[in-house]
């Protein structure tokens, strides 16, 4: 009786609630995708799906639009930012979770997590006022002058040493994604059972050997999850990148030079888009961005299932 009165209806209500919530979330996502795809239909119709995807021209006057420069821009900036951020993030996670005294570890972990709480426009401003002049005066100009003298062929690859461009955008992006990679790695490292560490210590391992041979392999699922979260964050980051990357609709051709990402071109042009085709093209870029994020997550999930150890194992 008791279970009938208290347990079952409660369970049923709760289950129903979960199902409804879950469906709502999926519905909203599907609606967004549809909205973007539908909004972009004019662009897809005018250039074809692959034509739009692979098109390299972005010219509002000639009404020619292609997403390729932005897709490439997104892929390059996020991949390079991730490559730059990964080791520092992992090193910080190891230092905090394994080496630092508890209070120091907590403090550093807190500061790193705080990086994730800063609004991205703050990163953008910091980039413009601090990083850009620094990069320009101390990295780009010396390199540019050096190449002018010794390797003129490099000048084209390096691009104009203005400070605004891919290099600065990537550096800021890397800084922004460190906390995501780091905090998931840190949690995963802390979850490695003591028995695992002790088993390796008992074989005559040093602390670093325990980290390398037991802790990191055991935590690899969480570390990888952090990498994916950071990558997703980099792919979608809009504000700071828009402020720093120089917003060029051409294929990124140089290290210092201007470029654009899928997110940045939308933010940059949406407000002043003229004509239906440009607007539609921007929505189509948004649709592709959504596909890209989805693909990254699906692939990540697939890999994660294979590499997780312990509780997360499927």
């Amino acid at each position: 009786m008791r279970s009938k009165i208290y347990g079952k209806p409660g369970d049923r209500v709760f289950t129903a609630l979960l199902v409804v919530l879950g469906l709502t979330v999926m519905l909203v996502a599907a609606l967004m995708a549809w909205e973007l795809g539908f909004g972009g239909r004019e662009a897809f119709r005018a250039f074809g799906f692959w034509g739009f995807l692979r098109g390299t021209a972005w010219d509002a006057v000639a009404e020619q639009f292609g997403a390729w420069p932005f897709l490439v821009g997104t892929l390059i900036t996020s991949a390079v930012a991730l490559a730059l951020a990964f080791l520092p993030a992992l090193a910080a996670a190891i230092a905090v979770a394994e080496y630092a005294p508890r209070w120091l570890g907590e403090l550093v972990a807190y500061l790193i997590d705080l990086l994730a709480a800063l609004p991205s426009v703050v990163y953008g401003l910091w980039g413009i006022f601090v990083l850009v002049p620094l990069v320009r005066d101390h990295v780009e100009q010396p390199l540019f002058l050096w190449s002018a003298e010794h390797a003129p062929a490099l000048m084209g690859v390096l691009g104009p040493p203005t400070g605004i461009g891919m290099l600065s955008a990537v550096l800021v992006l890397a800084l922004m994604i460190v906390p995501y990679a780091s905090s998931l790695a840190r949690d995963a490292i802390r979850l490695v059972p003591r028995s695992q560490r002790e088993a390796m210590y008992a074989l005559g391992a040093t602390r670093w050997e325990v980290v390398r041979r037991v802790v990191l392999p055991y935590a690899r699922g969480g570390i990888f999850a952090g990498v994916i979260l950071a990558l997703a964050r980099a792919i979608g980051e809009t504000m700071a990148v828009t402020m720093l990357i120089g917003n060029s609709g051409q294929l990124p051709y140089s290290v210092f030079g201007p470029a654009a990402t899928m997110a940045s071109v939308i933010a940059n042009e949406f407000a002043e888009a003229e004509g239906g085709l440009q607007l539609s093209s921007l929505l189509a870029v948004g649709f592709l961005l959504m596909l890209l994020s989805l693909a990254v997550n699906l692939v990540a999930d697939f890999i994660l299932r294979r590499m997780s150890v312990g509780e997360g194992r499927k």
Partner: peptide, 18 residues
Amino acid sequence: VIRRRVGMVFQRPTPFPT
């Protein structure tokens, strides 16, 4: 060095899962 000379087996099996 001591732990290399004096080994240990624990109460619960501790295979390295990876």
